[in-house]
């Protein structure tokens, strides 16, 4: 039919600007780097290696270490952050709660800070002689200053604390918005039936927010796989910069890509191969998350 055809055309017209921009600025670089990933490069000298870069990756201990580092964030930081965000959203959704606006704004505020700025701030707060140790010592929680950025374990703890501070409110916002879709009558009915808050949280809130939880989980997973600004700036400012955080404890795949491109003998082919493996991992994890949540598109 005539009308159908013209609407189809309009569809393309509407998305054309975005498609042109995406093709230029995202698709072209992606395809170009796919091509590059079959070469081993040194600056602008190229040697074709086919799948050689990919084979090499699986023996590269630094790359594996970077995966291990982010998997800890994946397993520890994301659940803590999302669970906290859910609780905040649940509590703030209570119509009887006072000062709601204040709490919501306060909890969201960290999300407006720039990644670089807040990382610099946290780096100062968590220096060995710094603010956080001073407070903890004064309260008497610890007797010795914690070696936050000097110990591989504590460096990761610092990163996790910083990221949780920055991103919890951001995720809370999605949940809060999602909760507005759940009519208050459901909660009221549950209360009449004698369901306490814990029951309400686990039996009503979480099941009804499932699609949004899935969405935030996938976004956080992708964000973690691409984690760059925070570890880069937390680890910056050392004398020779030999390791990214103590014992490379803050090395993430993106930081490794950056190092392979810009700090080491520049091998853009190898860096491209790393990024494709990251894409693959992101895709697999997203699929698993879809399966676990049991959501069909």
């Amino acid at each position: 039919m005539k009308i159908g055809k013209s609407y189809n055309l309009w569809g393309w017209v509407f998305i054309s600007l975005a498609l042109i921009a995406l093709t230029l600025f995202i698709l072209y670089p992606i395809i170009y780097s796919l091509y590059l990933s079959t070469f081993s490069t040194r600056g602008f000298l190229k040697t074709f290696v086919g799948f050689g870069n990919y084979k090499r990756l699986f023996q590269d201990r630094n790359f594996l270490l970077s995966l291990k580092n982010i998997s800890i964030i994946f397993v520890v930081q994301i659940p803590i952050m999302l669970f906290l965000a859910l609780i905040y959203a649940f509590l703030l959704n209570d119509p009887k709660l006072k000062f709601k606006g204040f709490f919501r704004t306060a909890l969201f505020l960290p999300a407006v800070t720039s990644l670089v700025a807040y990382t610099i701030l946290f780096k100062m707060m968590f220096s060995t002689d710094g603010l956080v140790n001073n407070i903890l010592l004064a309260i008497g929680i610890i007797k010795q200053p914690i070696r936050w950025l000097l110990d591989p374990f504590w460096a990761k703890v610092t990163l996790i604390i910083a990221m949780t501070w920055r991103w919890t409110g951001y995720n809370m916002m999605f949940y809060l918005a999602g909760l507005q879709n759940i009519p208050n009558e459901i909660y009221e009915a549950a209360e009449i039936d004698g369901a306490n808050r814990r029951v309400q949280f686990f039996k009503i809130t979480i099941p009804l927010l499932k699609p949004i939880i899935l969405f935030t989980t996938i976004m956080s997973t992708i964000g973690t796989l691409q984690l760059f600004d925070e570890p880069m700036n937390l680890a910056a400012g050392v004398v020779t910069g030999s390791s990214v955080g103590p014992g490379n404890s803050l090395l993430t795949p993106s930081v490794y890509i950056y190092n392979v491109c810009f700090k080491y003998v520049p091998n853009f082919g190898y860096a491209s191969a790393i990024s494709y493996v990251i894409v693959l991992i992101a895709a697999i994890l997203s699929l698993i998350q879809f399966k676990v949540v049991g959501e069909r598109r």
Partner: peptide
């Protein structure tokens, strides 16, 4: 465009667009 003028081919394009979210930006710089 994607939502109001739904079509199979555009949905495929949309899926590709979403997938590009996963590529680490550091690799695209050069």
């Amino acid at each position: 465009g994607f939502e109001i003028y739904k079509s199979k081919s555009r949905n495929r394009v949309y899926a590709v667009v979403l997938w590009t979210l996963m590529i680490p930006p550091a690799a695209l710089m050069v």
